[in-house]
Write a protein that binds this DNA or RNA. Sequence first.
DNA 1: TTAAAAACATGATAAAAATCATATAAATCA
DNA 2: TGATTTATATGATTTTTATCATGTTTTTAA
Lengths: 225, 225
Amino acid sequence: MSKCESCIVKEFNSLKSLTRDELVRISACKTGKTYDKGRVIFEEGETINGVYCVKDGVCKLTKLSENGKDQVVKLVVKGGLLGKRSLVTNESSSLTATALTEMEMCFIPKAEIMDDLQKNANFTLDVLQKMTEDLKESEHSIVNMAQKPVKKRMAEALLYIHDSFGTDEDGYLTIVLSREDYASIVGTATESAIRILSQFKKEGLISTSGKRIRIEDANALKWVE
Amino acid sequence: MSKCESCIVKEFNSLKSLTRDELVRISACKTGKTYDKGRVIFEEGETINGVYCVKDGVCKLTKLSENGKDQVVKLVVKGGLLGKRSLVTNESSSLTATALTEMEMCFIPKAEIMDDLQKNANFTLDVLQKMTEDLKESEHSIVNMAQKPVKKRMAEALLYIHDSFGTDEDGYLTIVLSREDYASIVGTATESAIRILSQFKKEGLISTSGKRIRIEDANALKWVE
DNA sequence: TTAAAAACATGATAAAAATCATATAAATCA
DNA sequence: TGATTTATATGATTTTTATCATGTTTTTAA
C-alpha cells in the first residue's frame, strides 16, 4: 500500500468506505512536497483546493487573534490531513498551517475527492465522523481555556503531547516545540510559559535537554492545580 | 410545510438534498415535547438516539469543567438541532442541553435519519457542511477564550446575542439570561460577570430593566479593550 | 569562526481576575 | 402574604497573569 493510501486510511478509517479503485485513483497523487521547518504551508484567508496529507513530520494549525498573537488550534502528525474543510466549503481557510519539523506531504486536489464525497455516502459519513471528533475536541478546548488556569493548561498540554505523539528512545517528547509555541498552545504570554516550565523543572515534574522535554512525573502533572 | 420540516430545512438547508418523501417521512415525528425553563433536555453522558429539533424557545449547550463550573458551548434557538453528533457516533452526549425559556421541541429518532444519511450522499454532505460551520465557530471560541480578556469577551457575547438572536420591540435582547449564564458563556466568575455588566451600564454601553439588557452603544462595545 | 539575531530566563511591577464577605433586591412558594 | 431562597450587587483582599526590563544562552548566518 502506498504512503498516500495509508494517510487517507488512517484519517478517514475508510478501508471499508472507499473501494479499491477509489483508493488507487486518489493515491495516484504525485504532488508530493517537502517543507522546511518553520515553513508556512497555507495561510488564513488562502484558498486551498484540496487536502494535504502528512506523510512525515509535524505541523501546527493556528489562528491569528486580534491581539496579534497566534493561537494553536491543533497539532497534526503523520497520517493526518490538513484542509478537510476545503472539501465542504468554498470559503478560504480559517487557519494557518506551519511546519514544526521537516515535513513530507502530498496534496490531493479537491476534484479527486469530491467525486467520492458525492457518490460514496459511506465515505462522506467517515469524513463526517472525523469532523465530529474534531468538533468534540475543540469544544473540550473551549472549556479548558475558559475554566482552567494557565499552569493546569500547560500540564495538560505536556501530557497531551506525550500521550498523543509519544517519546523518543531517551524518553523525550517526540514533538519539540519552542517556548513560544507552548505559549501559543496554552494561550498565555511567552514569559509565562517559560516561567511555568521552569517551575515544573524545579519541582521535578519535567526535565529538559536543550529544547527537548522529558516528563518525569506524569502523575504529579495530572494533579497540578 | 409542517413545523418539523422547517427545522430540518433551516438547519440542514436540505430542501435540495432530501426528497419530498424523505422530508415527509421525517416530519411525521409526532413526539413533540414541551420543556419548562430551566429543564434539562439531556445530560452529558446520556445516550440520545436521535436529534431534537427546536420549534420554539432557546436552550444552552454546556459542558461541565473539572472545577465544577458549566461552560456554555453554544446557544440554540428555533430551527436549530440538538444532538447532531449522535447521528454519527454511538458515544454518549458530551454536552448537556438546558432550556433557557419555555421550549417546544420535537424528537426525530436516529433510525429515521440514518437511512437518509446512508443513502442520500447529498444530505450527508449537508450535515457535513453544518458540522464544518460548528467547528469553525468552535475554533474561533478557543482563540477568544485563550487570548482575549474577560471584559472583551463579555462585550462580544452581548453583541453576538444581539446580532444572532435579535431584540424585542423595546430593543431589549430577545434572549434573557441570568448573570450566572453570562459568566458561563464568557468563562468567568459570576461576580466578575456582574461587575463587568455593571460597569458597562455605568458607562452607558448597555441599560437594563430587570434581567433584560439593551445595547445602547454597540460601537463602543465593539471597541472595548 | 565570529557577530548578530533569536530564544530562553528571571526579576520587578502592574493589571486582571478570582475569591471571600456581606448587603440588598427579586423571585418563589408554603 | 410573608418567609425563604435565589439572584444581583459591591467592597476588600488575594491570586493569577501580563508586561516591562534586562541578562544569558543558543542559533543562525555572514
